[in-house]
Amino acid sequence: MTPSPEAMSLRILVCVKPVQDSASGHWRMNHYDGFAVEEAVRIREHVPGSRAEAVMVGPEAAAGVLRRALGMGVDDALHIREPGSTLEPFQIASLIAAAVRTRNHDLVLAGVVSEDAAHGQLGALMAEMLDRPCATAVVRLVLEMRLSRVTVDRELEGGARERLELPLPAVLTIQSGINSPRYPALSRLLQANRRALPTVEALVLGIPPSRVALVKRCTPPGTRHGLVLEGRTEDKARELHAILRRKGLPPRPAGGRP
């Protein structure tokens, strides 16, 4: 492990992505990042002298997302300001890597995927750019400070898992369900609201050129018949009942005759 100022303490970085609600325009923390922030805060609480920092690339209007991470218990926050919201994952990773490269975090955490774009690339990109080992989709994490090592169980397909050991410093992406993300503490939120967040402009860090261009959009084709039942609730219930009977799947009241 890169020597931390306090022996056996950890410097943790957690990457959070702001996700915009399409109806209200309101920014919230990516669902999966909530689990990563919670994990960062738990480690910080368990390993004395450790510090957790959150980093976010996003517009000024999304600063509340970073404040939420502070409210949940991270110590510091860095806002990489970028007005658009269409950066590609490798551009976001390049920005974060440029901002944190010299900070020698022992552990970098990110959510397994973002709920809006669902690229699922950021953690593995960060690992490559910072030259760290990486494990994705982590559902259990045990730190062995004496060995400067982290042992994780990560999810494979169909509920199977793989157990991996990674030397620190390392990058992990956190899968949902690993913990129950806490609500931000009100006192911490108020504190965070009073505080100016450290900010750096993406343009200053340098955004690498895009590698894809959006050419067109269309509606996905349906795979099934998609009969939409019309009328009042009672009419729909009656029609569903008729369809099920026709299909040989008649519902019968519990305790009713066969």
Binding site: G226, V228, L229, P253
Partner: peptide, 28 residues
């Protein structure tokens, strides 16, 4: 899910399911 369904019911489930249950009950 509506694109993957044969029958689409645009309803609040807490309203639709009770109505459906009473219908099945009445049918019995």
């Amino acid at each position: 899910i509506m694109r993957e369904a044969d029958v689409c019911i645009v309803e609040d489930l807490t309203r639709f399911i009770p109505v459906f249950l009473s219908l099945v009950e009445a049918d019995k």
